[in-house]
């Protein structure tokens, strides 16, 4: 499999409400990430817009439906469409999540948690091998946030991710917010999680917001619908000091604010990373 060179830059997810900003103006980002499935269509306006954005910015294809954790294997029609899109757009890289979304009968359209077992690891690695071979490229996989763990778990999520990367040669998309959310929900140490990953294989970082737990609901929810919280900024600074320069983006999926607000958050990521990298160099 091909290797993916590090790309140090700061980007945003392309959302419909910001199409005009990206098409008509100059948005100061180094890359744009899009949800692959929104553009895995036959034709029409979405593809035309993506091609126009691609003419201005490097693009990352970030999927939510590959379902590498599915015991029933991957959907070959899905892979064929993703391959067609990747050939058309020539992305910086293609990514998806460590999760499962479907059985052979139904699709949840949600990123569901995997039991962290050796059997699940074998399934994930087989599916990633199949995806990378079909697409003809090495992929990135993102750590999920989760709301439950399974009684049959045999390893930590970071050990699972590390083994997955080692066996398949895939790279990692580290969602710092997801680590924070899962750490809160499952009581592990967020820094221990990140330190347990092969950080030299992290090619991208996601930063996002979440809905805190309440007295009535003792679970943090990964809503991606608000600004990045202070604890996640601190964890990002700690992480970048260990990964070195890495592509970073603000990922907002809901409650999308005006573009300027996201650019302000991206500026903060730049400042934090600069500070952290300077300290690392000293």
């Amino acid at each position: 499999m091909t290797s993916i060179a590090p790309f140090h830059g700061y980007g945003l997810g392309l959302r419909r409400t910001h199409y005009a900003d990206f098409l008509e103006g100059e948005v100061p980002v180094d890359f744009v990430e899009v949800i692959s499935e929104n553009y895995m269509v036959e034709g029409g306006k979405p593809l035309r817009i993506l091609e126009e954005v691609r003419a201005k910015h490097p693009v990352i294809l970030h999927g939510v439906s590959m379902s590498v954790g599915s015991a029933s294997g991957l959907d070959d029609e899905y892979l064929a469409r993703l391959k067609t899109l990747a050939q058309r757009i020539d992305p910086l890289w293609v990514s998806d999540h460590l999760c499962w979304t479907r059985t052979s009968a139904h699709n949840s359209h949600d990123l569901l948690p995997l039991p962290l077992t050796h059997e699940a690891l074998d399934t994930v690695c087989d599916n990633i091998d199949h995806a990378q071979e079909t697409l003809g490229r090495t992929m990135l996989f993102e750590n999920p946030s989760s709301y439950l763990t399974f009684p049959e778990d045999e390893m930590s999520e970071w050990d699972f991710m590390a083994a997955m990367a080692r066996r398949t040669g895939c790279y990692m998309l580290l969602d710092v917010n997801n680590v924070h959310v899962s750490a809160q929900n499952h009581g592990f140490d967020a820094q221990e999680y990140i330190a347990g990953l092969p950080l030299e294989r992290v090619r991208q970082i996601h930063l996002a917001g979440h809905t805190p737990a309440t007295p009535e609901r003792d679970i943090v929810i990964d809503t991606h619908d608000r600004e990045v919280c202070e604890a996640v900024w601190e964890l990002y600074e700690w992480t970048v000091a260990r990964t070195g320069p890495v592509a970073t983006m603000i990922e907002r999926d809901d409650g999308i604010p005006p573009l300027g607000e996201l650019l302000d958050e991206l500026d903060r990521a730049r400042s934090i990373a600069d500070r952290s990298l300077e300290a690392r160099a000293a």
Binding site: R102, T103, H106, D110, T117, T123, F150, E152
Partner: peptide, 17 residues
């Protein structure tokens, strides 16, 4: 059916019902 497949089938059924 593997343990993982059984877990995912049961989880999906719980999700839908």
């Amino acid at each position: 059916m593997s343990a993982l497949a059984a877990r995912q089938t049961a989880f999906m059924e719980s999700l839908l019902d």
